Amino acid sequence: MTAKVVVLGAGYAGAGAINQLEEELDSTTELTWVSDTDYHLVLHESHRCIRDPSVQENITIPVEEIKSPSTRFIQSEVVDLHVDDQTVELADGDTIDYDYVLVTLGSQTAYYGIDGMRENSLTLKSLDDALEVHQAVKTAAKDATRNDPAKVVVGGAGLSGIQSAGEIAKFRDEHRAPIDIYLVEALDEIFPGNDPEVQGALRKRLQEADIEIMTDDPIVEATEDAIHFDEGDPLSYDVFLWTGGITGRDALDGADLEKEHNRVNADATFQTSDDRVFAIGDSAIIEQNDNPAPPTAQAAWQAAEVAGKNVARAIENRPMKRWTHKDKGTVISIGDKAVAHDVMGVPINTFGSFPAENLKKLIAARWIADITSWKRAMTAWSDL
């Protein structure tokens, strides 16, 4: 009897899992891949499009270059997952039957109930988002003067917020645009929860890029032209980009699975409360000793390999592998510069300059090579 396996999503987790599943599954299994885009976006490089939209050519990988001809691909939005019926509901009304489904739908921006945030901010969760931010910054700069510069505010000083602010600064510098940039964080330091050494290194480079950092005062409201703080004076803006956090996708609203903030709870084998549903990437909260696995590209890459093996093992009724996330370090770009921290195998705890910048490129290139080829990765090198 033919087993039907369906993978939902074309992010890091989805693309990586497709590669692994094609290795693990035999010809008696029907593999279907569903995504609302017909390409994989190298999301941790999408901020590059804020500075230069042409970068999109090298960070969007067509699914046809990733999957084998035997894998069926359906371009459609997933709107629901019916675990009792073992079906996936699509936006056009069609359904897909499955024996096993791997949920890798990623996440969407969390607004934390802040008044006006959803209505008045831009986000950075897709290629279209990045291009919209680029156009908004470009338009604001065009209408500004040296005496009345455009104000661009980035809310949230995590990985995405820091890198986005850096790209906006490079756009400003390359175009000699009259733009003031503000990076706003509710907590008392940028890159919250991380080593003070890397926080200090990032702060230094952001300040060198003439980005004003505002911390320790949460946003309580966003209007169409200003953000309002718990304590400080309002900050007017021409462009407001919010990168403050993530939550699960709406498609999982009605799924009868254990969830937190619409992210599916999964154990270290990636099985959920329904043993025919697996989940990895930002869609999932994956059990890992004291803390769940982080919602990062690195974790998704690692999980995808084991998830592909475990779906195959479930079909064959074999014991599944348990996954443990291994943090191999962090590399963050600020424009053309970068900071690396706690990189596995490197004796220096935090470093920048040429080594960090090229390590950042190598990480993205390695991922592109893994799902396609080194030829494509090297073509993309200058844009990474």
Rank of each mutant, 00 (worst) to 15 (best):
L31G: 07
E167F: 12
Y12A: 11
G116T: 01
I114V: 12
T29R: 10
W323R: 03
L90T: 02
K326A: 06
D36T: 05
V277C: 00
G329Q: 05
I211G: 01
R72V: 07
A209C: 09
Q20I: 02
I61H: 04
T71Q: 03
T269A: 10
D36H: 10
A201F: 10
E24S: 02
F229R: 00
K360M: 07
S273L: 00
D370I: 03
A15N: 14
R313E: 03
S273V: 00
G200W: 06
N291A: 14
F240Y: 07
D115T: 10
G16P: 13
G158L: 03
T29E: 14
G232I: 01
D267K: 05
V7I: 15
V339W: 00
K337E: 15
K151W: 03
N289Y: 05
T29D: 14
S121M: 08
R176Y: 15
D327F: 08
T109S: 15
R203A: 06
M117Q: 15
T372D: 10
G9R: 00
D256K: 15
E357V: 13
K151E: 06
D274S: 11
V152N: 02
I50E: 05
R318Y: 03
E174P: 12
P69N: 03
D230P: 06
D216I: 13
K138F: 10
G245T: 08
A17E: 05
T109G: 13
W367F: 15
S160W: 11
I348W: 11
S76M: 12
G352D: 12
P234M: 12
D210L: 12
R203Q: 07
D94F: 06
Q108E: 15
L187N: 01
E89Q: 13
M214A: 14
T379Y: 07
V63A: 13
A226G: 08
T60Q: 08
D92W: 05
K326G: 13
A266F: 06
D92C: 12
T109I: 10
A356G: 02
V184C: 13
V343Q: 13
T324Y: 01
P294W: 08
P178C: 04
K138I: 03
Y112N: 02
T379P: 08
L43A: 09
V331T: 01
G156T: 05
D97G: 04
D180E: 13
D282A: 08
I368F: 11
I211M: 08
A144G: 04
R276Q: 14
L359C: 02
V239S: 08
L127C: 09
D143T: 15
N310M: 05
T71D: 05
T330S: 05
T87R: 03
T60N: 09
P62S: 08
K4P: 07
I114L: 04
P149T: 00
G232C: 01
R376K: 14
N262T: 14
E221D: 02
Q20R: 14
R172V: 08
V184E: 07
L21S: 13
P69D: 06
D370L: 07
I50G: 00
I246P: 04
G254Q: 15
K67L: 11
V184A: 03
H341F: 15
D230N: 10
